[in-house]
Structures are given as C-alpha cells and as structure tokens.
Computed example of a mutant assay.
Amino acid sequence: MKYQIHHKTVYRYAEPVRRSVHELRLAPRSGPLQSVQAWSLSAPGSLSEARDGFGNIIHNFTLAGPARTIAITATGEVEVMSTQSGDAGGHHAFHDLPDAGESRVSPLYFAGSTALTHAPADMRAFAAPFLAAGHEVPALLALADGIAGRVGYKANTTDVATTAADAFRLGSGVCQDQAQVMVAACRAFGIPARYVSGYFYDPAATELASHAWADVCLDAGRALWCSIDVTHRCLTDGRHVRLAVGRDYASAAPIRGIVEGGAGETMEVDIAITPLA
C-alpha cells in the first residue's frame, strides 16, 4: 500500500505566546516495514534535524516573538509492506537494526518500566496466563485481545498523562492507553516492548487521527520484533504507517513543546490519508 499523508496541527491562543520551543517526531523513516518516498515539514521557525537513540527522526524549532497561532504541517508519501516478513518459526516478525554508522539503544533498554508504563500487581496477574508459556506471537496476540477487552476503546475518558495502570483500572481508554498497557504488561515479565506512534488508514472513518500500537521484542540479540495493534487486535499490516517509537507516549509523541505566555490554548488537528495507485 502507498499513501499520501497530510497532517496539520494548529494551536491558537487567547493571549499571545511570547516564546516557544518545540520538538517534533512527525517524520517517518524508511525501515523493514515501510519506505518513505517523500516527506516535508513546515513550521513557523527554522527546523533543525537529528536522530534520537531510538532511531527516530526529530525536528526542533524555536519561535520568538508574540504569536497567537502556531501551525505545524507534515506531508508526504509512504509505501507500506502489506504484511510483516516471516521469521521466528514462521511467525510474523521483522529485524530492526541500526543503519550503518548509527548509534541506537539496545532492545533491552525497552524492558524497564516508566512512570506511564508501570504494571501494578493486578495487571501482572491479568497478563500472567497469557505469557506463562512464553511470548511467541500467538501468545502476544492473545494478550492484545485480552487487553482490548479489558480496556475498552472509549474516546474522551483519558488524556496524555493517563498511565497504563490508570487506564487498566478504569477499564477504558484510547489507542494510546491500550498500547501502553500492552507495553507495561510485557515489561512486567522482562519482555522488551516499545510504544509506537503513527497513522492507521481506515477508509470508513469520517475523521482520521493519529494512532498508537506496540512493538514487542522476540529476540533482543537479533533485534527481532513483532508489531501489534491492540485496538484492532492484529499484527500491523498495510494500513499502518509508523512515525516514531519510544518507551511510552511521552518519548514518542508527535509534538512536544514548552511555551511562555499563551493562555487559553486550543488545538485543531486535521489528518488526511489517501491511497495511491
């Protein structure tokens, strides 16, 4: 599948922003599951580009002077492989190795919990039966299915500060929460797992939004992973476009920023995903 993607985020302020610093993870990178054909970003400041220790492409900009509106736009074309390549005993998996000359953290770095992905005792007890016999792909898919049933999808019940433990006990959340519960549950049993931000193409959706899912490491020594969409209870496929990975939402968020001034903030997001022949 090949897609044209247009993602625009506009922040508006009742009182002007005096100064702001922004960090963007809005540029997908080519890898084993996708090929970026073209991509561009626009923002009201001069963009600098770098790579973080997870392999993500990061852009930063600083805006000085009064501003009531900050608009950030990402657009481009990405070709996605229809399925994950076969490996690990015939199951779907992929190798995510650093490019030549690139420094990146070990997959084992994703085995430690964070404030957003701490697994309390009730979550560990819930996950234990699924992982008792190991963490092969069928067991992980069963765990994802269990999480989707336990943390039902319901918009506007959580926010970006909601932890996996909070969403698990609440019993509802959005894709971000379901992915973080999956990550937390795996890490509770020593299995490296990472949060993934990106896009999901649904031709029936009237409004498209950013999506989130989880990568789970099958073999740290070979950097072998599988990618699981808890919300849709499946392995990722030709509908998924990856933007960034992190230990949790906070380290993979598409946009992060600090502003001085700027009271009364509102945000509008418009995402369009068009399949290309």
Rank of each mutant, 00 (worst) to 15 (best):
G134K: 10
N56S: 12
R29H: 13
Y109E: 12
V216G: 09
G65I: 05
F54L: 13
Q176G: 02
T62P: 07
V181C: 01
R68D: 11
L24H: 02
I58C: 13
E15K: 13
K154I: 07
E268Q: 12
R233N: 08
V174G: 01
E260Y: 07
Y249M: 03
L208I: 09
A223H: 13
G90T: 04
T158Y: 00
Q176S: 06
R239D: 08
T266L: 13
A38R: 10
T83C: 14
T83S: 15
M1H: 12
F189M: 06
G101D: 05
V78G: 04
A272E: 14
A132C: 10
L243G: 04
A165H: 12
D248M: 07
L140G: 05
C175P: 03
Y201A: 00
T162E: 07
G171S: 05
V21E: 14
G31I: 01
D122A: 08
L170H: 10
P66M: 10
A43S: 05
S103W: 08
H232T: 06
L140P: 00
S48L: 11
G261T: 00
D215M: 04
S251R: 07
R222L: 05
L170F: 14
T266I: 14
D122Y: 08
R239C: 08
R19Q: 11
N156L: 13
S46N: 14
P44T: 07
A179P: 00
S103I: 12
T9D: 03
I5D: 01
H232F: 11
L116D: 01
L235D: 03
R194K: 08
V241N: 06
V245F: 09
H135F: 13
E136A: 15
Q178Y: 07
T157D: 01
Q4L: 15
R247I: 15
I5S: 04
D145S: 12
L143T: 01
R247L: 12
D99N: 12
D145Y: 05
V105W: 08
V181M: 06
L116T: 01
E207G: 07
N60M: 15
G262T: 00
E268N: 07
T83L: 14
A119V: 08
T9K: 00
A14H: 12
L26M: 13
G45I: 05
F168Y: 02
